[in-house]
């Protein structure tokens, strides 16, 4: 249970005072409910996350956390560059307290992050993906009630993303999640409720889909005012309806089908991501999203078929 009341935040740097980033935020994050934070770039998502984590203090207002809250898991910070991954993990394990066995934690992180020999190299030699993997694995080594994720799943390859999503899903029930992400699939997957940030104020939505819809409304409104509809770009990328192929009977056929559907899925995915990156109007994005979802479903079915036909090993 995290209670945010009357929260104001703005940044001061070199005697200069900037505009309010967050103004009069009143939120209450119930126990066990995962929340997605949405908003355009600069809307204050990461600031809110930092405040919840206790990394920063609000100018006014209070944040009450009556549970163990993680640090914001993501790209930025948390590691000292000159120390090795192992030393950093050791440090955090010690800071988090005596009830954690340091060697246990190290072993867990080492396995999860899959850094290989780089685990004993200084952090400053890491790529951003490696850093994120380490940070992510590290946070999972501790039993937090609430995990804060700042685009933690954005970097890293597909395999790691799948692993990360699964890890978060396994935690459901024991702990909840407050996450910032621009990937709506992940938000829908992992979160129940949503908070939409705009112009310094926050709106709570009990359903993440409503929050996403509100976010779409804003982005498409912006698009409509400053450009002519960009429909042309989208045509042609939409995956074609598939001819109904006979159900595969043998393992080889099933694998063939899986391969094909994988290709379809990849195509739909790139189209969808392109559409999102272009900030197309929401109806256009919807179309791509639907195509993407169907492709995913079909791929999933094909995979299941292969799994079913495989001889037990």
């Amino acid at each position: 249970m995290i209670e945010v009341s009357g929260l104001y935040k703005r940044y001061h740097r070199q005697r200069k005072v900037y505009d309010w980033v967050l103004e009069d935020i009143n939120l209450s994050f119930p126990k066990g409910v995962s929340v997605g934070l949405l908003g355009r770039n600069g809307a204050g998502k990461s600031t809110l996350l930092r405040l919840i984590a206790g990394m920063d203090t609000p100018d006014r207002g209070t944040i009450q956390r009556n549970c163990r809250v993680s640090w914001p898991i993501g790209l930025a910070g948390g590691f000292q560059g000159s120390m090795t991954g192992r030393q950093n993990v050791k440090f955090v394990a010690r800071v988090q307290g005596g009830d954690y066995n340091v060697t246990e934690v190290i072993r867990f992180v080492q396995e999860f992050a899959e850094l290989g020999d780089s685990f004993d190299e200084p952090i400053k030699t890491y790529s951003s993906g490696m850093r994120a993997r380490l940070n992510f694995g590290l946070s999972l080594a501790f039993d937090f009630d609430v995990y804060l994720s700042d685009e933690a799943t954005a970097v890293g390859d597909r395999a790691f993303r799948a692993k990360a999503t699964k890890a978060f899903k396994d935690k459901v029930g024991k702990s909840s999640l407050i996450m910032v992400s621009h990937s709506e699939g992940i938000l829908k997957d992992l979160c129940q409720a949503g908070v939409y940030l705009k112009d310094g104020s926050a709106t709570w939505y009990d359903d993440i889909n409503d929050a996403i819809a509100a976010y779409h409304e804003e982005t498409s409104a912006v698009k409509a005012t400053d450009s002519k509809p960009a429909v042309v770009k989208a045509s042609g990328t939409k995956p074609q309806e598939k001819k109904t192929a006979p159900e595969p009977q043998t393992l080889a056929q099933a694998q063939q089908q899986r391969k094909q559907r994988r290709a379809e899925f990849d195509k739909a995915k790139t189209a969808f991501e392109q559409a999102k990156a272009d900030e197309l109007p929401s109806q256009e994005q919807e179309k791509h999203a639907n195509a993407f979802k169907t492709a995913r479903k079909r791929l999933h079915q094909a995979r299941q078929r292969v799994e079913a036909m495989k001889p037990p090993s």
């Binding site: 206790g54 006014r60 207002g61 009450q64 956390r65 009556n66 163990r68 307290g97």
Partner: peptide, 15 residues
């Protein structure tokens, strides 16, 4: 100074 409370089961001294 805004008050921030967190009950993690450890006393400030232990932390």
């Amino acid at each position: 100074m805004p008050k921030q409370t967190h009950t993690s089961g450890r006393t400030p001294w232990q932390v």
